[in-house]
Design a protein around this nucleic acid. Structure first.
Lengths: 141, 141
DNA sequence: AAGAACTTTAGAATGATTCGAAAAATGCAC
DNA sequence: GTGCATTTTTCGAATCATTCTAAAGTTCTT
């Protein structure tokens, strides 16, 4: 095993420990895949495929469990751009998205690059949880 | 049958004709339910239930077909706020949404009430199809 | 009324996700 | 280290929303 792999593994374990999640084999593998390659957007199915390609056999149910645990721990954020499948984003900072429906391409827009002029008045007894902006794109004609 | 019902029915038929859709029994019923009560947000299941409650037996498959046809004809717009079910909105003007995940409440924000300071630069060869802003709310603590 | 085209329908099929219960792994106490 | 309680993982079944299929029913035009 290469040094780099070991390092990424250590980092993943640290991340899990800090999040209060036991560093099980599958969580470590998934954390490595997710967090050692910059910002990423994945579906459960994709992540499952990648783990498998990495030689780690992890059941799809575990991938789902893990994605939700990571989300609950604040390591991931769910991006809702399609009413048919869930995308998870490793970038948990405030930011928004470009989305190309036809290809499924999802790309970050840094939080500062976009902002609203004003917030309309909210319904009774509610507070803002978060603001999601999705700029839907299509191929130039 | 009351006069008001007849009128709503006429209007629904006119709407369908203008959209180039044959005014079949089920399309007329669904159009009536959808468009004669101000702006609405519905899921297929909800609409199906309402039509049934109105005494019109319409299969769920037809409700799905019809929602998509109405959307294609520009009578409805799909709102993506949940990666598990599709909402359709009778308001096709430019506007945005408040969404309360726990209760499924979806409410319009008039288009003018919100706007972005600037549009970030787009990926190559893409144009904006539309911008969706969802303000996710939760119960005040 | 007849035929062509379009719609609706029931039920099967699909795809994403969750559930349940048993098997396995983990972490702590001794 | 060993043993045990607890947490996780896993398989496969179950569920939910949605789409598909092929047959039966409507609608429109003439």
């Amino acid at each position: 095993m290469k040094k780099a792999d070991t390092e990424a593994r250590e980092q993943a374990i640290t991340l899990l420990n800090e999040a209060g999640l036991r560093p099980t084999r599958q969580r470590v593998v998934l954390a490595q895949v997710l967090f050692s390659n910059g910002d990423r957007h994945v579906t459960a199915e994709q992540l499952h495929g990648e783990a498998e390609a990495d030689g780690a056999a992890i059941s799809l149910a575990t991938v789902y469990n893990t994605l939700h645990q990571f989300k609950g721990a604040g390591l991931l954020r769910e991006v809702v751009v399609d009413s048919g499948r869930a995308y998870f984003d490793t970038n948990t900072k405030e930011h928004h998205h470009f989305y190309v429906e036809k290809t499924g391409l999802l790309e970050d827009i840094a939080g500062e690059l976009i902002s609203m002029t004003s917030l309309p008045k909210l319904p009774e007894n509610k507070v803002v949880d978060r603001v999601d902006i999705v700029i839907r794109l299509r191929e130039k004609a």
